[in-house]
Amino acid sequence: MTQIKALVITGFGTNCEMEMSHACRRAGALSDVVHISDVLNGSTRLTDYHFLNLAGGFLDGDDLGSAQVESVRLKYARIQTSGRTLFEEIRDFIDRGMIILGVCNGFQALVKTGLLPGNPMGKRRVSLSFNDSAKFEDRWVRLAVDLQSPCIFTRGLDRLFLPVRHGEGKFVCDNNGTLEEINNGHLAALKYADESYAPTMEYPANPNGAVDAIAGICDATGRIFGLMPHPEAFNHPANHPAWTRLKELPKKGEGMAIFENAVEFLKGII
C-alpha cells in the first residue's frame, strides 16, 4: 500500500508547523516540514506529496492584512527550476485529486488566493476580516458540522470543540450570491455553535462575528478545506481546557479526527 505523504509548509511567519506535522504523523501519514524557500528553489516538489498543509501563524506579520502578502507570493513568485508560480503548482496538485488543509493563517491564505471557495479558482470571493471585538483572542469554541457537506475532512463528525487564536477571523462574502452558493452547496462545513451545538451569532461562542457563524469552508469537491479553529492544537486529550474536570481522559484529542479523515480519504484513492 502506498504511504500517504503530507507536506507542511513553513517559513516567513508560519508557526504551527510542528504540531500540524505531528498530527499528520499520528494520523498515519509520513510528514515533512518544509520551508517555503525549498519549494521556491525547486528542491521540494508538490508532486511528491498527497496532503498539503498550510499551517497557522502570521505570514509576513499579516502586516497588510492576514495572508495578504502570501497571496502575492503565491501569485507572483516563481519556482527557480520550473519558472512556474506556486499558484500554478497548487492548481495542478488539486487537479491530481490531492487534498489541502488550511488552518487559521493557512485558511486566510486559501481564501485570499481564491483557492476557496474555488469557483472560479483564483478569484477572491470571500475573506476573513478583523474580529468584531478588534482583539486577538485565544478561546475554545464549539463547532457544528454540516452533515451534508462534501468536506472529506469532517466526515462522520457532527461536532467539534477546538481553540481559535486569531484577530482576523470574521468570515465575510463579497455578496449575498456567494453566501447563498456556499450555504446551498453545504460548503460551510463548520459553524460556531452555542452550548446545544446550534450555529450562533452570539459573542463569545461566535468569537469574531463571522457571517452565518461560518468557521470553515471547503470547495465543491470537499478536498480543499480551510478553517479558523486549530484542530492540530487538540492533538492530545490534555489539550482540552477543562480536561482535569473529566472523570476519564479520552484516548486522543478531538482535533485528530480531521487528520485521520484526511489520511483515510487518501488511502481510498491512492
Binding site: N15, C16, M18, E19, H22, A23, G56, K135, F136, E137, D138, R139, P163, R165, H230, E232, A233, N235, H236, A238, N239, P241, T244
Partner: peptide, 15 residues
C-alpha cells in the same frame, strides 16, 4: 490573558 496565544506549538496542558 485572552489576547495572548497560550497554546501555539500544540503542547498546552495547564493553561
Amino acid at each position: 490573558v485572552r489576547q495572548y496565544d497560550h497554546e501555539v506549538q500544540g503542547g498546552s496542558i495547564v493553561k
